[in-house]
Each structure stands twice: as C-alpha cells, then as structure tokens.
C-alpha cells in the first residue's frame, strides 16, 4: 500500500514514504511506554509479579522500536532538512530524552539484587517515565523553528483519504507486530523461568545445577 496505493506527497515527494514506518513505530513505542507505566502501577497495587513482567517486556519492546524511530527519523531528517540531527527540534530532542531515560531502566534493575525491591523501584521508575511521555506528543505542537510533520493535524485539514488509510493500516500492522513481539517475549521468559524452577527443584542434591547470579529480568 505504501508504494502502490498511497500517492506521492506534493511537498516531500517520495521521501514522505518514510512516514509510514517512522510515525506508526513512534506512536506504538510511546504508547508502549505508557502501557509499561500502567502495568507498573498495577504491580504496585496488586504486588503480583506478572504485572512487573508485563511492564518489563512492554518497555523492552518499546525501546527496540524507539531505536528504529530514532534511526528512521534521522534518515528522514537528512532527506528533508539536510541534517542527520537537528538539536533545535523539540520533537527529536524530547524523543531522545525519553529513549535515554528508558535506557537507564535495565541498569536500575540490574543494580538491585533483591527481587522485590527491584520490582518496586522499577515500577516507580516506569510510572514516572511513562508520565513524561505525553510531553513528547505536546512538543510537536510547540515546535517553532522547524515544523515537524503533524500526523493528526486538524487545522490544515488532516491527511487526505488515501494517505490516511495507508497510515491507519501501517499503524494497525505496527501495533500487531508489537503485540506479537510482546507475546513472543513473554512466552520465552515464562519458559525460561519455569525451566529454571524445575532445575532448582531437581538440583536439590546436585550442586552443578544450582543457578547463581543476578538478573535484570523479573523472576516469576
């Protein structure tokens, strides 16, 4: 659809095709960060480890997508503005801050050996960082020097039909990919922890099977 259905943009031409991968990825990553914060709040409320695991996995996948957002955004900036990175552009810088903020999530978890404390501190971090994310959306509207393309602009008439349809399909596709990655990661983590538990059980009299060392991932 991106290449054969959506028409060429009058302003940017063919380069605008980056929009269909960059923007859905950014939206899904930012929504994922907020979802991670919500899961973390659920953990603090219920103290059930599954919520900590969900928060951890959601943030993990969101950070992977955020890397993609930064790289594709940089490529788009180079094609549109002639620079790989523009420090005066609030959207770019605020997204970078969000990314760097979440990049400290793993060192924070890894620094705490006590699993209960690790989950609690990480949850507080996820909630605070998740609250910062809406500022990122607001930053687009506050941009002055460079105008970052607005996805849901209402004053300029929004996107024409074919652009909008292609974008919505790309957004749904990206959201489904995100959910699939989360399910895949959760299944992998569950299998790993169940096997570890089984090994520990079997290792009752076998020292060689006893697992040691700390991990940033939650323990089920």
């Amino acid at each position: 659809m991106v290449f054969f259905y959506a028409p060429l943009d009058a302003d940017q031409g063919f380069v605008q095709k980056i929009f269909y991968v960059h923007v859905p990825m950014a939206i899904v990553a930012l929504v994922g960060f907020v979802a991670g914060g919500i899961c973390a709040a659920m953990y603090l409320r219920t103290r059930e480890t599954k919520w900590d695991m969900r928060s951890y996995v959601t943030i993990h996948i969101s950070v992977i997508l955020a890397v993609g957002v930064l790289v594709t955004g940089s490529i788009w900036a180079r094609a549109s503005w002639g620079h790989w990175w523009v420090w005066d552009e609030p959207m770019l810088v605020s997204f970078l801050i969000v990314f760097l903020l979440y990049a400290t999530y793993w060192p924070l978890r890894f620094s705490l050996e006590d699993k209960e404390k690790q989950a609690r501190y990480a949850s507080v971090f996820a909630i605070v960082a998740g609250a910062f994310v809406p500022l990122n959306f607001a930053a687009v509207r506050m941009a002055e020097q460079y105008i970052h393309p607005e996805t849901f602009a209402t004053t300029t008439g929004g996107m024409p039909g074919k652009f909008a349809l292609t974008f919505v399909v790309a957004l749904i596709g990206m959201a489904l990919l995100f959910i699939t990655m989360i399910k895949y990661e959760m299944a992998s983590k569950h299998a790993t922890f169940r096997l570890r538990a089984l090994r520990r059980k079997l290792a009752g009299d076998d020292d060689e099977l006893t697992l040691t060392g700390r991990s940033a991932a939650p323990q089920l």
């Binding site: 063919f14 380069v15 991968v21 993609g68 180079r78």
Partner: peptide
C-alpha cells in the same frame, strides 16, 4: 524544509529507512 528530492536520490533514503526497520 528543503524542496522535494528527485526519485533517484530520495529512493536510497526510503530504502535505508525500511531496511533499518527490517534489520531491527
């Protein structure tokens, strides 16, 4: 904003962006 790039020049940027996504 710069004027729209010609297709031959814009193509490599678009391909680059989609390849980054695929690679990820």
């Amino acid at each position: 904003m710069l004027p729209a790039l010609p297709l031959d020049e814009a193509g490599k940027y678009v391909a680059g962006a989609y390849l980054v996504f695929l690679l990820l």
